[in-house]
């Protein structure tokens, strides 16, 4: 018999990392061995995570796509469900269904430089791209990562950033809006730091994700740097419930963000109603 696509698969949390005061990363594994071994996902795809008894929410799968047995989501406490999720620790059972949505077209980007501008928890959907590029280092040109957060305490993925900083042909620029007494790094907003970093747009693609205001201000910087709209990508944030193109919530113009997105090029976004 067909499986109900709304039925989650049980998974066990293997590790919990408190990234910031309100953001937690969970690593988890599907319990069913056959499902776990068969599972694959691509950078940018998302999943529905259940805390049984509390409902479901949508998160991007923020892991290394080359290690699909170890799944990862990074969650920020903003509502009732994420609040409940943040009470879970290693060993707890959660529900998982996915992957959903169109991925970043990483295969089309081979041979190109990759420029990534992320803000806050917006680094989560970008992390699988970074992992993918580093896993296939020879296939891609220079990797530039500009990552910013409000304060030093709001920076996530410390362990990953250490790896990225040492990776070959990779430039990692970390910035905070406002530093503290111990902060020795850069201060400034992502768009300004991106402009100062000035990555070459020749034969490069740009990907940005972060709070709406950051995206809004970052897109013109990419444009000024010479990136055409077809080569700037972002993910559209929209309330979702099913992930299947059925529940109607994420409908925007003739598209469903869950099915036709969440990854869109800016050229595609320009065709959509300016609702979001």
């Amino acid at each position: 018999m067909l499986r109900d696509p709304l039925l989650p698969l049980p998974a066990r949390i293997s590790e919990r990392i408190d990234e910031t005061a309100d953001t937690v990363t969970f690593h988890f594994e599907l319990l069913d061995e056959a499902e776990r071994k068969a599972f694959r996902y691509l950078p940018g795809q998302f999943a529905e995570i259940s805390n049984f008894g509390e409902g479901e929410s949508t998160f991007v799968i923020a892991g290394d796509p080359a290690k699909p047995e170890r799944l990862t989501v990074t969650t920020k406490r903003v509502g009732a469900h994420t609040e409940a999720l943040h009470h879970l620790y290693a060993g707890a059972i959660i529900g998982f269904r996915g992957p959903y949505g169109k991925a970043f077209p990483v295969a089309d980007w081979k041979g190109k430089d990759i420029v990534i501008a992320g803000g806050g928890i917006g680094l989560a959907p970008l992390k699988p791209i970074i992992c993918h590029v580093l896993n296939h280092r020879a296939d891609y040109g220079k990797l530039t990562i500009v990552y910013g957060a409000r304060s030093p305490g709001d920076l996530m993925y410390a362990a990953d950033r250490e790896i990225w900083a040492k990776a070959p042909n990779t430039e990692l620029v970390v910035t905070v809006d406002k530093g503290d007494a111990n902060w020795k790094g850069r201060e400034g907003f992502v768009p300004a730091v991106l402009r100062a970093t000035a990555p070459s747009a020749a034969n490069a693609v740009a990907i940005t994700c972060g709070p709406p205001i950051m995206i809004k201000l970052t897109l013109p910087v990419f444009k000024d740097l010479g990136f055409p709209a077809e080569r700037i990508f972002t993910t559209l944030e929209m309330k979702m419930k099913c992930g299947l193109g059925q529940c109607g919530r994420c409908n925007i113009g003739p598209f469903y963000v869950c099915k036709d997105g969440p990854v869109f090029s800016v050229a595609q976004l320009q065709q959509l109603p300016q609702e979001f």
Partner: peptide, 11 residues
């Protein structure tokens, strides 16, 4: 023809 739904838990 309206099909929209939400998913939630009730105890």
């Amino acid at each position: 023809t309206c099909q929209c739904f939400t998913v939630d838990d009730e105890s």
